[in-house]
Amino acid sequence: MTSRPGGRSARVREAVLRAVHAELTEHGYSGLAVENVAERAGVHKTTVYRRWGTVDVLIADALDHTRETEWPVPDTGTVEGDLIAVATEVADAFTDPGRLPVPVAIVVAALQSSRALDAKRAFYDARQTEAARVVTRAVERGELPPQTDPVELVRLTCAPLYYRIFITGEPVDRATAERSARAALAAARAGLL
């Protein structure tokens, strides 16, 4: 027997994953509890334990669900503007107190759970592939050399931001995001990517 798309199972999943996001936003990774998620979602905790089992699997499924939603790829008309928009989105996600607990929880969960690590990897693979469309368009417009690796340019744009966020703990702001995007763009224009 297959489950119906949009049936009770889908509604339960939606409610639980919304609750995971809300709980992460309010309490962070260390405060995430299956019981609180179940209560917020309006389902019995045994339903959550039976389907997800652990907090890390809940986070992984929430990340999978986020990956399934459409992300608006920037289209400013120039590769510079688009890469700055991509970098700014990363900076904003890690500086907005309302959004920060969720990506941090995802990284923490990925350090502790292979399921969460796989979900994080799949999420970033999907986002990098989507963001790479800005580079593909730029190559087609003649803004970048034809051999430019679109995904690598996106990685190079974002890498300095993640380095500051997760390694050195230095602040990240929009000026840092712009500088990172422009440096990556200079490397691509020089044919290094």
Rank of each mutant, 00 (worst) to 15 (best):
P145Q: 12
E130C: 05
G81H: 03
P72L: 04
E14L: 06
E23I: 09
T88Y: 06
V139T: 09
T157M: 04
R18P: 06
T54V: 02
D75K: 05
W71A: 02
A85K: 05
V102C: 08
T78H: 02
R50S: 10
T46A: 11
T46K: 05
H65E: 15
L192D: 13
Y163W: 14
A15E: 10
A41K: 02
A38L: 00
L192H: 11
E39G: 10
V79P: 03
V37Q: 00
V16S: 08
P103E: 14
T129S: 12
V86K: 04
W71S: 06
H21Q: 13
L111G: 14
R155K: 11
V90T: 11
A116T: 00
A19S: 11
E68Q: 10
I59M: 07
D173W: 01
T69M: 06
V134F: 01
V34L: 08
T2L: 04
L144F: 02
E178R: 14
P150M: 06
E23V: 10
T157K: 01
A188T: 03
V16N: 10
T157Y: 03
R189C: 10
T88M: 10
R115D: 14
T136N: 07
C158K: 12
Y124H: 06
T46Y: 05
G77E: 05
L117Y: 11
D61W: 06
K120R: 10
D61G: 08
E178I: 09
L83R: 03
P97E: 15
C158R: 15
D92W: 03
E39S: 03
G191S: 10
K120G: 04
A33L: 09
P74E: 04
R174N: 11
D92G: 15
T129I: 09
V86L: 12
L100T: 15
V107L: 15
D96V: 12
H44P: 00
E35R: 12
P150Q: 05
L24S: 07
T168K: 03
Q112A: 05
F94A: 13
A41P: 01
A110D: 07
R127T: 08
T136H: 08
R174K: 11
A138R: 04
E39M: 02
V34R: 01
T66R: 15
R51W: 08
R8S: 13
E170H: 14
I106K: 13
